[in-house]
Design a protein around this nucleic acid. Structure first.
Length: 191
DNA sequence: CATGGGATTGACT
DNA sequence: GTCAATCCCATGC
C-alpha cells in the first residue's frame, strides 16, 4: 500500500486539490473508501466558514495544509474537510461521499444499514461509517493522525469528473465547485 | 448573555 | 415534498 498524501499535495489552489482528491482513499479506524464527491471552499467567498476571518472555529482552516477540519453540522453530524493552500489562507475541500472499499461490515454496523450505496453517500454518512468525530479536528491527514488519505489506486487513475454547483448552501450557490466521479452510484445527489 | 442559523439526515405526509 | 432533531458558534444587544 502506498504512503499517505503529503502536506505539499494540499499546499495548492483548493480547486486543484478538490479535483485531484476524487479517487483518493480515506482511511480511519479499520475502514476505508474511495472519494467520489468533493466540494471546494475558500475564504474569498461567503459560503466558506473562513469568510468571517480567523475565529476559534475557523482557526483550523487558516492553519497549515494537510490537516483535517472536522466540525459538527446541525448539532448532529460530523463533516470532514481537508485543509488546503498555505498557512494563513482559509481553504478546504469538503469530502462529501465515498465508495466503500475496506471494513464494509464495520461501516454497516456503525450505520445500521446494509446497502453499499447508502453507507457513505453523504458528508455526514461517511463520517458515521468511518467513525470520525469532531474531536479529530485539526489532526494531520498525512500519516500521524487517526484519519489518512492515500493516493488514487490504479483503478481510479483515469476517473472522469463532473463539475456542478455545491449542495446545501445559501451563499455563492452559483460557483461550480463540486466535483463528482462520473456515473458513480455512491454520490449524495446526482449532478 | 440571548439568539439565530446552519457545508444534513431520516422519518413521515 | 415537508419537517424536526440538536448544539456549537458568531453576532448583536
Amino acid at each position: 500500500m502506498s504512503a499517505p498524501l503529503a502536506a505539499d499535495f494540499y499546499d495548492r489552489p483548493v480547486l486543484e486539490v478538490a479535483r485531484d482528491l476524487v479517487g483518493c482513499v480515506v482511511a480511519h479506524d479499520g475502514a476505508s473508501g474511495a472519494i467520489v464527491e468533493t466540494e471546494a471552499y475558500h475564504d474569498s467567498e461567503p459560503a466558506c466558514h473562513a469568510f468571517v476571518g480567523v475565529t476559534n472555529r475557523t482557526r483550523t482552516l487558516f492553519g497549515p495544509p494537510g490537516r483535517a477540519y472536522v466540525y459538527r453540522s446541525y448539532g448532529i453530524h460530523a463533516l470532514l474537510n481537508a485543509v488546503c493552500e498555505p498557512e494563513g489562507v482559509g481553504a478546504a475541500v469538503l469530502i462529501r461521499a465515498l465508495e466503500p472499499l475496506e471494513g464494509i461490515e464495520r461501516m454497516r454496523a456503525r450505520r445500521g444499514l446494509d446497502r453499499l450505496e447508502q453507507l457513505c453517500s453523504g458528508p455526514g454518512k461517511l463520517t458515521q461509517a468511518l467513525g470520525i468525530e469532531p474531536g479529530e479536528n485539526d489532526t494531520p491527514l498525512t500519516g500521524a493522525g487517526p484519519v489518512t488519505i492515500l493516493p488514487r489506486p490504479a483503478a481510479w487513475s483515469d476517473v472522469e469528473l463532473v463539475a456542478s454547483e455545491r449542495i446545501g448552501i445559501t451563499k455563492a450557490v452559483e460557483l461550480p465547485w463540486r466535483f463528482c466521479a462520473r456515473g458513480s452510484a455512491h454520490v449524495s445527489v446526482r449532478p
